[in-house]
Amino acid sequence: MLVLSRKKGQSIVIQDAIEVTVLDIEGDTIKLGVQAPKNVPVFRKELLESVLQTNREAAGGNLAPQQLAEQLKKFKKK
């Protein structure tokens, strides 16, 4: 992994197109500004991981449709 030291206000540039700037540092929180073309999606990594995880869980749900329909009926009556 490439390791670079940056101070507040300094940036790194990736492939001439993506610029990441350190906007602010407070305690252990760093505020980053990312300038990237519209076709480059930028996400917090934990969000991506959470989407992966919840998709896998949802696909592996072990409730049969009959059970689901039953539970739903019960639920609607409440």
């Binding site: 919840t54 998709n55 749900g61 409730l63 539970q71 639920f75």
Partner: peptide
């Protein structure tokens, strides 16, 4: 929808 075992506990993304 993430149902797991009980519909009451279902969550959505």
């Amino acid at each position: 929808v993430n149902v797991r075992d009980q519909i009451e506990n279902a969550t959505v993304n």
